[in-house]
Design a protein around this nucleic acid. Structure first.
Length: 107
DNA sequence: CGGCTGACGTAAC
DNA sequence: TGTTACGCCAGCC
């Protein structure tokens, strides 16, 4: 595999690996890519990722499990509905039992 | 080349 | 416990 991937593409690759029913955080992805302080940049990359159907951006939330980027899905409830469809419980724009559904790109 | 922005994170109050 | 301020890094104007 070519490692010529851009920072954005690297983020996409990780997000694409997120299994069904699981979620991850921007900081986790950033740290996995070696840019622990670039969590913001990861979120910025996701802004362009939502255009790609291959990237389940709805499975990426902030460190608190909050759906901070839900308004970027076109609909305010789009992200929440997608997560609920995967079996997640969303209350107050926050994923319940977030620690149990959290997935790490390590495996 | 310089400055602004942003789907975050951590620290401080 | 909730809110505010700052830092960090990559992309874009």
């Amino acid at each position: 595999m070519s490692q010529q991937h851009d920072f954005f593409e690297r983020v996409y690759e990780v997000v694409r690996k997120v299994p069904y029913g699981k979620v991850t955080t921007y900081g986790t992805i950033a740290r996995f890519l070696g840019a622990a302080r670039s969590a913001r940049t990861v979120g910025y990359a996701m802004n362009a990722a939502h255009a790609l159907e291959d990237v389940p951006a709805h499975r990426v939330v902030n460190r608190n499990g909050m759906l901070t980027g839900k308004h970027h899905f076109g609909g305010i409830n789009t992200m929440q509905q997608l997560l609920e469809a995967e079996g997640h419980i969303i209350i107050g724009d926050k994923i319940q039992d977030f620690d149990s559904v959290l997935w790490s790109p390590n495996e």
